[in-house]
Design a protein around this nucleic acid. Structure first.
Length: 966
RNA sequence: GCUCAAGUGGUGGAAUUGGUAGACACGUUGGAUUCAAAAUCCAAUGUCGCGAGACGUGUGGGUUCGAUUCCCACCUUGAGUACCA
């Protein structure tokens, strides 16, 4: 692993470089020249469109998809292709197994980094994106993926985002009917309104919608109607409190915020009221939850979606506020504890606060509200433990006892969840308990035989309610049922299910995203007619949003859409009599990625996002591979859009991704050198001792497999190290190691280009799989690649000898057959279970065995190539063609496993035990009678324990029972 | 705090209806080849012990003829989530 430079020096000082001689004197076909082979077959595949998938076939379909990449400027490092290699192996395997495989690739090419780069350099994001895609494509091509590039999609391509805009219009023209439990055309809603008003409409919609009759509706003005409908549409415009990130100049969705700061850049985020487009994903909360049970995803991923959806079952309860008209409505999961309520708490932002606060308490309450408003989201999160609050002076009335309950405000109650108010039961909730203790509020105990002197009793299990009138003696379940029915009688509550899932904000104040197909007339949003799509991004002079949040599209004078309607809607005509204005926000990053898997089915369709035929043929993604960072973003939004498209009859599937695998991240192994503080002396790792040293990351390419650093390369690396001195151990400088994320700043990035150059793509593919289990995070270490590289060289030698091809028509020996068939069995099992790492070992063992057996039989060596070809497609393709095949090896079918080649010749030894039970011992033929005797004797005791069980077949080897077969 | 996942040699990791722990690879050591290096090949390589042998899968218990595997408690690490009523 020495650098190229060092290698050149070695060549120079050696006057008879043997390697060159070898190359000069020996015919080239004898050695494994991966560079030539890989180039040759990559060109062949491209030219022959070997992996082009057809939309109709008598073969069964199989759709293997990777999460498409965002083409960043840095290009690929060795961590990126991991998932692509795994999916490629699976796709190639499925082709061998006789499936019509769809395995496409594309780019999620709208996004913030291209825009940031544009802001800094003034270069148009489309240009940098194009450049980056070229680099990605070159890097992907050299790894030998079997993608069908004829179906490539780019989310920033107008012919693609035309359909993203189209789907947006569909969402706008739909509402969610709870009675039919699906989205319907907005026309069915207006028909209902016109015939019976909104009394009987059971829709997912905004809160606080006034009720109206049919005649009211028919009398409403057009604007009024639009305003009402907006509250029902699946994408709607609303003034909501959003996560505003001033540094990025845009709003962020909940899943784009990590620990109170923006996921990208780590900038602070504040709450701000803005008018924004939102997606009514909450309508689908229950179906998104239920659907998880029908798909084959990892439990942990399902769990994080379940947490995100956050279903909680409980009750909605209303408390009258004494001597006023107001009611405080709360959501609780513990209605059974209603007799334990000793106070109520409202979020400081709650609407009622200003209305019910008494004049004596006004000053304190206002001071408290101001103090909490000042604290950012992050501060509020960081001192969770601090208890604070204020008494409003108002009292609520208990629905059953009619006792007065003081109403407090406190910032431990969140305005955004439930109703923003809670009924506080200190004996049953720890936060209520702490609050009560802090403000000396009574803590009545309503649990039988439970000590609450130190903390609240929060468990729902093994609890008997006491001191609770008609609930006494009941369990949690019984009491909950009972109290809900009593509340319903009083018309002061009902059973309710709450979800944590919020509607998703869909507007971004950015340039590099999909424009909305929207214009406004008198403030009301209108969809631009579908025939004018796509609405293209206009040219602007500056890509930066303004500080106040005005989107960069506002700078556009001319919109690049040359239709009649354009001239009507264009901003230039804003002074006309009717005021038209375009929507200037763009869509968020997840818009384009929420449906791209359908576009691959029919990527060039101009009439629809995909034809009905292609949609009904390919249906859904059978296998989806990608990182787990999309658990609550992309994977949830995609499922939402698919369910919506199904409801409206555009697709026939309920879930887009049948099986999903998260590949683990490949980490970098950083190398560290130790500089003695204040000097230019570097001390080798094991000699640090008492020196005070400073750790410095050094380029991993200067370090070999035994952690020895190339000192010369280090010195020329950076000018300030030119005069470096070294304290060596055994003449070597040994570096320290540390595992980090791969990043430029740690100098631990390994580029697939240089790996392909030095060892070849087949080695890279095998090694990435060999590193460890697909789903696990694991550090990269280039040193180990010599192992798989050596394997490929051995493989080549097995097929190609000094005098040409080693393969003959000779009969395979039983040993040959055994090696082949155990390999078939293992590899097939491994691929089906996605344990690609262990099959690499299996191949190595097989090649060693076949080499030792001096196997030349075509009947063995030919099917063996097919087994290996998903993993190492280039070398197998080359050998396949040398064996005389005209067609690509990818057309060959997977060899059939035949168990008879694995079974040792056996003889059954029926033995009886205690004169009653009979066991059949299957033993290898070559076992001597004495050994059998010994085996049975050694397990006399064991047998005794088996007595009384159903007789079984016992397979044993000397000294041990290996298996008990039922 | 809660939820989930995982702890095995110097390193990455094998081993499941409970049955020879450490496959395979890296690294290390020794040898062959070479003027020399690279490459290649052979051998050794869990720990202790000259050896027979003993010990050994995070810790402590349990079930079992038998536990890396199953159960309980704990410790550690990683990921997600966080005042969700």
């Amino acid at each position: 692993m020495f650098s190229q430079r060092r290698y050149v020096i070695l060549l120079k000082i050696s006057f008879a470089p043997l390697r060159l001689c070898e190359i000069l004197t020996i015919p080239s076909f004898m050695n494994y020249h991966f560079n030539e082979i890989e180039k040759k077959w990559q060109d062949y595949w491209a030219k022959n469109q070997t992996f082009k998938a057809e939309n109709n076939s008598t073969l069964p379909k199989y759709y293997v998809l990777d999460m498409f990449p965002y083409p960043s400027g840095a290009g690929l490092h060795v961590g990126h292709p991991l998932g692509y290699i795994a999916s490629d192996i699976y796709a190639r395997y499925k082709r061998h197994k006789g499936f019509n495989v769809l395995h496409p690739q594309g780019y999620d090419s709208f996004g913030l980094p291209a825009e940031q780069y544009a802001i800094q350099t003034g270069q148009h994001p489309a240009l940098t994106t194009e450049e980056n895609i070229k680099t990605y494509r070159r890097q992907l091509d050299q790894i030998g993926f079997s993608f069908d590039w004829s179906r490539e999609v780019r989310t920033s391509d107008p012919s693609y985002y035309k359909w993203t805009q189209w789907i947006f219009i569909q969402l706008f023209e739909s509402w969610y009917n709870n009675d039919t439990n699906k989205a319907e055309s907005i026309e069915t809603l207006t028909a209902l309104f016109a015939s019976e008003g909104n009394k009987n409409v059971n829709a997912v919609c905004d809160d606080h919608i006034e009720s109206f009759s049919a005649s009211d509706w028919n009398a409403f003005s057009s604007e009024k109607k639009q305003e009402i409908l907006l509250k029902y549409r699946l994408t709607y415009l609303a003034e909501t409190e959003v996560n505003w990130c001033p540094a990025l100049g845009t709003v962020l969705a909940n899943d784009e915020i990590v620990n109170g700061v923006s996921e990208r850049g780590g900038h602070p985020v504040v709450r701000k009221k803005m008018t924004q487009w939102s997606m009514r994903i909450s309508a689908y909360a229950e179906r998104l939850l239920q659907g998880l049970d029908t798909i084959d995803w990892t439990e942990s991923l399902k769990e994080s979606q379940r947490n995100w959806i956050g279903k909680s079952v409980g009750a909605h309860v209303e408390f009258r506020v004494q001597s006023s008209e107001f009611r405080v409505s709360v959501f609780t999961t513990r209605p059974d504890t209603i007799f334990g309520v000793s106070f109520m708490t409202l979020a400081p932002e709650h609407d009622l606060v200003s209305k019910i606060t008494t004049s004596e308490q006004k000053q304190k309450v206002e001071a408290y509200i101001q103090a909490t408003a000042k604290r950012s989201e992050r501060d509020r999160m960081s001192d969770v433990k601090k208890i604070s609050g204020a008494f409003t002076g108002a009292y609520a009335e208990h629905p059953f006892t009619k006792e007065a309950i003081p109403i407090w405000i406190g910032d431990y109650v969140l305005a955004g969840y439930g109703t923003g108010a809670v009924m506080s039961v200190p004996c049953g909730d720890q936060r209520d308990y702490d609050f009560a203790k802090h403000f000396n509020i009574p803590i009545p105990n309503i649990f039988e035989g439970v000590d609450i002197s130190e903390e609240a009793y929060v468990s729902k299990d093994n609890v008997i309610i006491a001191n609770s009138d008609f609930l006494n003696g009941l369990s949690y379940k019984e009491a909950t049922k009972k109290v809900i029915s009593e509340l319903e009688k009083l018309n002061q509550g009902e059973g309710k299910t709450n979800y944590r899932l919020r509607d998703a904000v869909f507007s971004r104040q950015r340039y590099w995203g999909e424009p909305f197909p929207v214009y406004y007339v008198n403030g009301m949003p209108q969809m631009i007619d579908k025939k004018h799509l796509p609405i293209r991004l206009p040219e602007v002079e500056k890509y930066l949003p303004t500080e106040t949040g005005e989107p960069p599209l506002g700078r556009a004078d001319v919109w690049a859409w040359d239709t009649e309607q354009c001239s009507v809607v264009s901003n230039q005509l804003i002074d006309n009599k009717t005021v038209f204005a375009l929507e200037l926000n763009t869509m968020p990053g997840w818009a384009g990625s929420s449906w791209y898997f359908f576009r691959y089915m029919d990527a060039h369709n101009d009439e629809a996002f995909a034809s009905e035929e292609s949609l009904s043929y390919w249906k859904d993604v059978d296998l989806y591979i990608g990182g787990s960072e999309h658990a609550t973003g992309h994977l949830l939004y995609s499922r939402f859009w698919v369910k919506f498209l199904k409801d409206r009859g555009f697709v026939s599937i309920e879930e887009p991704f049948k099986k999903l695998i998260n590949q683990g991240m490949i980490l970098g192994t950083s190398a560290l050198v130790y500089r003695i503080e204040g000097t230019q002396k570097f001390v080798s790792k094991n000699l640090i001792g008492d020196y005070k040293v400073q750790e410095i990351h050094v380029d991993v390419n200067f370090v070999n497999a035994s952690d020895e650093m190339d000192i010369e390369a280090f010195k020329v690396w950076r000018s300030d190290f030119e005069s470096a001195e070294f304290i060596l151990e055994d003449g070597k400088y040994i570096v320290g190691r540390e595992v980090d994320k791969m990043s430029k700043s740690k100098y631990n990035v390994v580029n697939p280009d240089s790996i392909c150059e030095q060892y070849g793509a087949d080695s890279l593919r095998l090694y990435e799989m060999f590193l460890g289990p697909l789903e696990q995070a694991k550090p990269w270490n280039t040193a180990g690649i010599t192992g798989v590289n050596g394997f490929l060289k051995k493989l080549w030698k097995l097929y190609v000898g000094d005098n040409g091809l080693n393969v003959t028509d000779s009969e395979p020996t039983p040993d040959n057959l055994k090696t082949l068939h155990k390999t078939i069995k293992k590899v097939e099992e491994d691929i089906e279970n996605f344990s690609f790492n262990t099959s690499v070992s299996t191949f190595m063992i097989a090649v060693n065995e076949l080499t030792a057996q001096k196997c030349t039989s075509k009947a063995i060596l030919e099917p063996f190539l097919v087994l290996l070809s998903p993993y190492a497609p280039h070398i197998t393709e080359e050998l396949w063609s040398q064996l005389g095949h005209d067609e690509s090896i990818s057309r060959a079918s997977f060899p059939e496993f035949d168990a008879s080649h694995l079974v040792e010749s056996t003889k059954n030894y029926p033995i009886s035990f205690n004169g009653k039970m009979k066991f059949t011992l299957e033993l290898p033929m070559d076992l001597s009678a004495a050994e059998i005797e010994k085996a049975v004797m050694a397990h006399e005791k064991t047998m005794a324990h088996l007595e009384g069980r159903t007789p079984k077949k016992v397979i044993i080897v000397p000294g041990k029972i290996v298996n008990i077969v039922g």
